[in-house]
C-alpha cells in the first residue's frame, strides 16, 4: 500500500515537473517566410505579400502600359507615393510599400524611381561628391529621371463583431496617377475577409 502510494506520488511529481519545465522553456521554430501564419487575425506579412503580388500582377497586365510605350517609345517610370492607413490597426505600411516596390522593379516592365526620402539622401550624396569626389567620378546634379506615374492608395477596414466572433474586412485600393495631367490610368482593388473566433475561456 505504502509502495503504491509512493509510486503514484513519484508519477504525479514527474508529470508536474514536466509541465513546469515545459512552461518555463522558450521554444523557437524557424518558418519559411512564405508560410501562412495567422496568430491574432490582424494584418500580417502574408497579407502584405499576397496583396502586393496580386495587385502588381493586375497593374502590369492592363492596357495603360502598352499605350504609354506606343505613345512615348520608352517604358513608364513609376514612383510609389503615400499609401494611407485608414484601418483599425497600427500597420507597418512601409513593409507593404517595400513589397510593392520589389514586385514592380522585378517585373522588368517599368522603370522605378526612388522615393522622396531616398532621393533626399541621394541628393545629399551628390552634393558631397561635388565637393569631395574627382571630376571623373562625381555625378552631376540635375540628371534625375522624372517619374511618369505615381502609385497612391489606402488600406481600409470594416469590422463586424458579436460576442466572441469578429469579421475583419480589409479593402486595399491603389491608383496609378499620371504626373503629367493627373489622369488615373489604373485603379486596383483587393479585398480580404477574415473570421476571428475568440475563446470564451482561458487557463
Amino acid at each position: 500500500m505504502k509502495n503504491q502510494w509512493a509510486k503514484n506520488f513519484t508519477l504525479i511529481a514527474a508529470i508536474s515537473a514536466g509541465f513546469i519545465l515545459n512552461g518555463c522553456s522558450t521554444t523557437v521554430k524557424r518558418l519559411d517566410s512564405g508560410e501562412v501564419t495567422d496568430l491574432s487575425g490582424e494584418w500580417n506579412d502574408t497579407d502584405s505579400r499576397l496583396v502586393s503580388e496580386e495587385m502588381i500582377r493586375d497593374v502590369l497586365s492592363r492596357p495603360w502600359i502598352n499605350r504609354f510605350i506606343s505613345e512615348n517609345g520608352n517604358r513608364p517610370a513609376v514612383i510609389v507615393g503615400g499609401i494611407r492607413n485608414l484601418s483599425h490597426e497600427h500597420m507597418n505600411v512601409a513593409t507593404f510599400i517595400n513589397d510593392i516596390e520589389r514586385e514592380l522593379i522585378n517585373s522588368g516592365e517599368i522603370d522605378f524611381v526612388a522615393s522622396k526620402l531616398e532621393r533626399g539622401e541621394i541628393r545629399d550624396e551628390r552634393k558631397d561628391q561635388e565637393l569631395n569626389a574627382s571630376n571623373e567620378t562625381a555625378k552631376q546634379m540635375g540628371q534625375e529621371y522624372g517619374a511618369d506615374f505615381m502609385l497612391k492608395g489606402s488600406i481600409n477596414t470594416i469590422l463586424d463583431s458579436i460576442d466572441d466572433e469578429q469579421v475583419r474586412f480589409y479593402q486595399i485600393d491603389l491608383n496609378l496617377i499620371s504626373l503629367a495631367d493627373n489622369r488615373k490610368v489604373w485603379a486596383g482593388q483587393k479585398k480580404i475577409k477574415k473570421l476571428i473566433e475568440k475563446s470564451a475561456f482561458r487557463l
Binding site: H90, K198, S199, A200, F201, R202, L203
Partner: peptide, 15 residues
C-alpha cells in the same frame, strides 16, 4: 499596446 493585448486575453473567463 501590451496592456491592450493583455486585456483582450483577460476578457476570456478563467474558471
Amino acid at each position: 499596446e501590451k496592456a491592450k493585448k493583455l486585456t483582450r486575453k483577460l476578457d476570456a473567463i478563467s474558471l
